[in-house]
């Protein structure tokens, strides 16, 4: 086993196979933004507090600033771009828009990825659970109320049977 300072990594991003030559010290967030060119993943603190860089790794929400890019070798990563299409907003995105759950938009990709991961696993999450989960994502603009409403309202699109 050889320890490396740079490495060619191959992984799946938003369903597509990608590769990148990265330094071992490169975070997954920086790799996605600068090597893969997906700048929707935002970096707000780089120390694992703000949640703006949340992506989905093998189905689970993760902070991409708390992962080395080399750790993603062989994994499946989904970013906000992978949860979007050009034709129309997804039900989750439309719910965010309807509820005015974003202002400056900087924390929004992290909110979308986190909420998507949550509702995929727990489509019946109640308000307390939604607040608990979103408490790992900072938003300075909205005061969160509209975000929580937007996520609750989007549950039906994930197969929630209602309360």
């Amino acid at each position: 086993m050889i320890a490396v300072t740079t490495m060619k990594i191959e992984f799946e991003v938003n369903g597509k196979a990608v590769s990148a030559d990265v330094e071992a010290r490169t975070t997954l967030a920086d790799c996605l933004r600068y090597d893969i060119g997906l700048t929707g993943t935002h970096v707000g603190c780089e120390h694992g507090v703000c949640g703006a860089c949340t992506v989905i790794v093998n189905g689970a929400a993760a902070r991409s600033c708390l992962m080395l890019a080399v750790q993603a070798d062989g994994e499946k990563v989904t970013t906000v771009e992978g949860l979007s299409n050009d034709e129309a907003l997804t039900p989750l995105q439309a719910s965010f828009r309807k509820h005015h759950a974003l202002q400056c938009g900087f924390c929004t990709p992290g909110m979308i990825t986190t909420a998507h991961a949550l509702l995929t696993h727990e489509p019946n999450a109640d308000e307390e659970r939604v607040r608990d989960v979103l408490s790992g994502n900072l938003c300075r603009c909205t005061g969160y109320i509209s975000i929580v409403e937007a996520v609750l309202d989007a549950r039906v699109a994930y197969g929630s049977k209602g309360e």
Binding site: A3, V4, T5, E23, A24, R25, D30, E46, V70, D73
Partner: peptide
């Protein structure tokens, strides 16, 4: 806030891991 230079290894066995450590 970029990490200082590091080397990285993901060994397949515990023996290798211990040797690297």
């Amino acid at each position: 806030m970029k990490l200082a230079p590091i080397r990285y290894a993901a060994p397949a066995t515990m023996d290798e891991a211990i040797a690297l450590l």
